[in-house]
């Protein structure tokens, strides 16, 4: 067993009075690839956002430990600086901020020392690897970008920061085959370049074809109801989530 990078114990979260996550226990080893599956509305994205510290949600119970540090009370920017990354399902637009300026400020916020020339070369190189038109670098972040381009920008940030843990929240949703392949390539590069840890939230098992998955989790109605190895993914593919939903209803 590798060193544990993330541990959640009895994690509960709510929006206002409405509980969403119930007693989530999750442990992810350094360098592992975990997949979180579940039907729509199960709370998968909520878990990703709560791990990152999204103030939209109230963490009503439990604890989160990341890289040996209790981050339960840590604000999201400190979690990012500690090495956690969340790729958004719907990345926001930031008008008035060119992508290149944003990337540079992000790198600086992380205390990475890079000469301008080096930064430009690195960003250019990553854009090329992700089949991204370099013209996008001078455009305002996300403004007028297609869904595919937005996801490529998320991948570019992932590769630039090389965090210890990347939570990919349905990064594959709404993408065509080509864009899907680019996202897969991004994940492979992340794994290859820094041996990073992945928690992939997805509906689409196609994105997992080129990855060696260590562990799969199933979430239904805000609860983790099953955990297994990669074989669980095939099982879900064949049988869906119905049996879990039935079990929960009967419990």
């Amino acid at each position: 067993m590798s060193n544990t990078i993330l541990t959640c114990q009895k994690l509960c979260a709510a929006v206002g009075d409405k509980p969403i996550l119930h007693d989530i226990d999750l442990s992810i080893g350094q360098g592992e690839v975990h997949v979180l599956l579940g039907p729509n509305g199960a709370g998968k994205s909520t878990l990703g956002h709560v791990l990152m510290g999204d103030p939209t949600y109230d963490m009503t119970g439990g604890s989160i430990e990341f890289d040996g540090q209790d981050i339960t009370e840590l604000p999201p920017n400190k979690r990012s600086l500690a090495g956690m990354f969340l790729s958004f399902q719907a990345p926001v637009e930031i008008p008035g901020v060119p992508l290149r300026s944003f990337l540079r400020a992000m790198v600086e916020a992380h205390g990475v020392q890079m000469k301008n020339k080096q930064f430009k070369q690195r960003v250019q190189e990553l854009a090329q690897q992700l089949d991204m038109d370099p013209a996008y670098l001078d455009r305002e972040l996300g403004v007028g970008f297609s869904g595919g381009e937005k996801k490529k920008v998320e991948m570019l940030q992932l590769l630039l920061l090389q965090p210890k843990l990347a939570i990919l929240d349905e990064t594959d949703s709404g993408l065509d085959v080509d864009a899907l392949s680019v996202v897969s390539r991004g994940m492979e590069l992340y794994r290859r370049d820094c041996g990073g840890t992945l928690l992939i939230i997805t509906h689409n098992t196609r994105i997992l074809e080129r990855l060696a998955v260590d562990c799969a989790h199933v979430m239904v109605s805000g609860r983790l109801v099953d955990t297994g190895d990669a074989a669980l993914i095939d099982l879900i593919d064949a049988q869906g989530f119905e049996r879990y939903e039935t079990q929960l209803e009967q419990a």
Partner: peptide, 16 residues
Amino acid sequence: EEQLFYLASRGFSQES
């Protein structure tokens, strides 16, 4: 708020 959270998730404090 969603922009602020996005930026925070990339390491930005309110000031930065």
